[in-house]
Nucleic acid binder design. Structure first.
Lengths: 410, 410
DNA sequence: AGGGGTTAGGAAAGGGGGTTTACAAAGTCC
DNA sequence: GGACTTTGTAAACCCCCTTTCCTAACCCCT
């Protein structure tokens, strides 16, 4: 249990100020102070730091009520680039962002079922990272860092993928291997936490002390934002909500247990819900999760009774599971994220809200918002890039206090 | 989302030092520095503060390896008194502690089923508090504070019991009402968090950053110690684990939901497990939870097959539920607390460990210890008193720096 | 008995951090 | 052009922790 130091306070405040600037660009120091609750002096110092780092720039002035005009600052989009890497079971996706977190370039690499050796995956990642840097035409020096998300349990400090169930990896020194191909600072974590941090910085969890980001994809999990920070647990594997028991002695899960949430609301689980209801439905595309979920979404839009029923059943399971999260964590907001949530959208959300209302305790439920993720792009890449951003912001504390040298503002 | 300030660091360190002193009295500054990871200078300042407050005293010297002997400090048991109040459905229990957290006096007041009005409860509390102060013969001035635990949802800042399901209280200004009868500083919270804080200070969660305290009584809940602090949630109702769904469409719970954990592993749930297995068992004492649980415990000790089976069944439910906690929180330790856990003891623990092993993910499970609470007395009273202790320690930050006046050591 | 070695603990200096206060800068209004 | 307003920086201050220096207190050895 490491001690909290005053430096942590500084880092947290730096995060908060930059978050706020990214969220609302351009903005004034006054507004930042009001939004963050910090004093004007502190905001001014932090803004000065960020200006020195060229992460933001002064962009003009705003009339004040009869006095000196407010100076405005905005993200300096071209002040650097961040790269997010989403390693999944069947593909590697890499996105390059500017500092406004806009996607400048993207590269996808498909991985064949056989390609599961770490060396092969590392090769794909290196190729894709090289590709986005070339595409975006940024000089390498401007890349502030590369965040890598890999499913499973990782040690973010040593950069080791301790356990990745997809490929049966054990203690793969992924970051060291990548470092041989990639010269930028590297950061490792898993998709659950990537999505959580993306919501915390840019999504529905912004400014919320306690939030749970529910990830609905092929697998299912929850990213926990508690007390303003990511909760990681003692071995960095907190948030394994997908293997929570929802139905005692229920469906068999690949984890060996029965009745896991994932077997009912993960994409394969939803397919099973559909198959059990209507084995011959045309909505069902065996062997293709994405197609099936998309077909369901279209079906719901067209008021197809089978699709409606499947979504309702799924929402019922999901609602019971989310109600548990509401009761346990009493968060301000629960965010539904990842591709299944994005595909099924509002209809799912509505049903889920009703189901949660039935299962959760009244008062905690009343305190909790349930929303869809407002993030339009791949949240895993964005979150991974955010790890790189956080890394860049933390490391500046380490070096000397960056004495501001005569910064002219004309 | 309030900001963290440098004062919070000080308070946390103060807690840690005093915790350590209470745990191991007498002790030296050197040992404290090693145990807390703080510098010697900081430890010395904090120890000085506590000496000034008369919470600890210098008690002698210890030989060092050939140099100046180490000064030893110990809790000054008679330096003050703390009172913990445990308000439950059918009784009010009040205990008075010295600063070593030893029980000096105890008072129990039974409440008849009809007596549910706040005024009546307040009357009982006031009477019992008066009683323990008289019994212990301490001067009133030495009482540092009174911690009150009431089941349900409370607002600890305003001292309002927002919702107490036992008596259908809504927004009762409990602390204001008590303040008319009790002149000491008052602190309000609920039994879940009281047990958690008791474990954090004096029990199995000491020194652990992440711990879950599972409360097994008539009701069931979990106190969450995350990142070294209590997690309260946005409306101070985090930890309502008892109403987590364990069996979809299972037993009806008084909360209106089906299949809640509480209906299987709360005392009434265990009685139902017994009744379903063997309706005419002599172990069953209808209308008397305590007697039934005690009978079960004796039955297990005597290898009664029915008792063994009931405990095994209960442990199976409990294990599935606790496995969810292991997966979600990835804590260092899970503590089983409250009277049902104490009564069923080791046999329950053994079965629970096996059941959790079957349900939880392998790696998080390997990182988590599961233990019985080592606290021998009523953990709720102890925890409530601890709230008063924490209050006394926090408030000293507010006043002036207590300039140390010539403290002679002869 | 008196010095040298060793360890404990206090006092002062130093480096972070945040806030308050004072003041210069840059406008508006009369 | 002067008075008023508002912004933003600089300086002073308080809090916190650590490092460094020095004295206190004890041991051992001569």
């Amino acid at each position: 249990m490491r001690h909290r130091t005053s430096r942590d306070i500084r880092t947290a405040n730096r995060y908060e100020v930059l978050r706020q600037i990214i969220a609302q660009s351009p903005t004034s120091r006054q507004e930042l102070a009001a939004a963050t609750g910090l004093s004007l002096a502190t905001v001014a110092t932090l803004v000065g730091e960020l200006l020195d780092l060229r992460m933001i720039t002064e962009v003009g002035f705003e009339d004040s009520a009869g006095g000196r005009p407010r100076g405005l600052v905005a993200v300096n989009a071209s002040g650097g680039a961040l790269i997010g890497v989403d390693i999944a079971e069947t593909y590697v996706r890499v996105e390059l962002f500017d500092l406004g977190l806009n996607v400048l370039a993207r590269a996808d690499e498909d991985m064949r079922p056989g390609e599961s050796r770490p060396e092969q995956v590392v090769g794909h990642v290196a190729a894709a990272v090289g590709s986005v840097v070339t595409q975006a035409g940024v000089e390498g020096a401007r890349v502030l860092g590369v965040g890598v998300s890999v499913p499973g349990q990782v040690d973010r400090d040593t950069g080791v993928a301790e356990y990745a169930p997809n490929w049966d990896w054990h203690d793969v020194p992924l970051l060291d291997m990548l470092a041989e191909h990639i010269a930028y600072p590297l950061y490792l974590d898993n998709p659950l936490r990537a999505c959580a941090v993306a919501e915390q910085w840019f999504g529905a969890a912004r400014g919320r002390g306690d939030a749970v980001v529910v990830n609905l994809g092929t697998g299912v999990g929850a990213g926990l934002v508690l007390g303003g920070g990511l909760h990681r647990g003692v071995s960095n594997s907190a948030g394994e909500w997908g293997h929570t028991t929802l139905v005692l002695d229920g469906r068999l899960c690949h984890c060996g247990n029965h009745g896991c949430v994932e077997t009912y609301v993960g994409a394969p689980g939803i397919m099973l819900n559909l198959r059990e209801l209507s084995p011959k439905s045309t909505l069902l595309h065996p062997e293709d999760q994405t197609a099936t979920i998309d077909a369901l979404a279209r079906g719901v839009a067209e008021r197809d009774p089978v699709a409606l029923k499947v979504v309702r059943d799924t929402a019922r399971y999901l609602g019971a599971g989310i109600a548990d999260l509401v009761n346990l964590f009493n968060p301000q907001v629960i965010v539904l994220s990842s591709w299944v949530a994005a595909a099924l959208g509002e209809p799912l959300l509505t049903e889920v809200r009703e189901a949660v209302a039935r299962h959760a305790l009244r008062r905690p439920f009343a305190a909790t918002e349930i929303v869809l993720s407002p993030i339009p792009t791949d949240p895993v890449c964005l979150g991974a890039a955010t790890f790189a951003l956080e890394g860049a912001l933390s490391s500046i504390g380490g070096q000397r206090p960056t004495r501001r040298t005569a910064r002219s503002r004309d």
